[in-house]
Simulated scan of single mutants.
Amino acid sequence: MAEGTGGTGALGCGGGGEPEVSDSLKTFGEVVKAFRKRAGLAQEEFAPRVRYSMPTVASIEQGRRFPPPDFVERAEEVLDAFGVLRGAARHLSRQPGLASWFRQWAQFEADAVSLYSYECRVVPGLLQTEEYARAVSYSVPPLPAEEEMNERIAARMARHELLSTSRKPPTAFSFIVEQAVLERCTGGDEVTRELYDHLLGLIERHWNVEFQLMPLRQPVHAGLDGPMRLAETPDNRWFGYSEGQENGRLITAPKEISRLHQRYAKMRSQALTPEDSLGLLKRMRGAL
Rank of each mutant, 00 (worst) to 15 (best):
A180H: 12
V181T: 07
V181N: 09
L182P: 02
L182Q: 00
E183P: 02
R184G: 09
T186R: 03
T186M: 11
G187E: 07
G187Q: 03
G188E: 11
G188S: 11
G188T: 06
G188R: 09
G188I: 04
D189K: 15
E190Q: 15
E190N: 14
E190W: 08
R193Q: 14
R193S: 13
E194C: 11
Y196S: 02
Y196C: 10
L200R: 07
G201S: 12
E204G: 07
R205C: 10
H206T: 08
W207Q: 15
E210C: 13
E210Q: 14
Q212S: 06
L213G: 01
L213H: 05
L213R: 01
M214D: 01
M214H: 06
P215T: 07
P215N: 11
P215F: 00
P219Y: 04
A222D: 02
A222L: 06
A222T: 09
G223E: 06
L224W: 08
D225R: 14
D225Y: 05
G226F: 01
G226N: 08
G226Q: 09
P227S: 10
P227A: 09
P227E: 00
R229N: 09
R229F: 03
L230G: 00
L230K: 03
L230T: 00
E232F: 02
P234I: 01
P234F: 06
D235V: 10
D235Y: 07
D235W: 11
R237H: 12
R237L: 08
R237G: 09
W238N: 05
F239I: 05
F239S: 07
G240A: 00
G240H: 06
G240E: 05
Y241D: 04
S242P: 01
E243N: 02
G244K: 10
G244I: 05
Q245P: 11
G248D: 02
R249K: 13
R249P: 01
T252I: 10
T252K: 04
A253R: 13
A253L: 12
A253W: 04
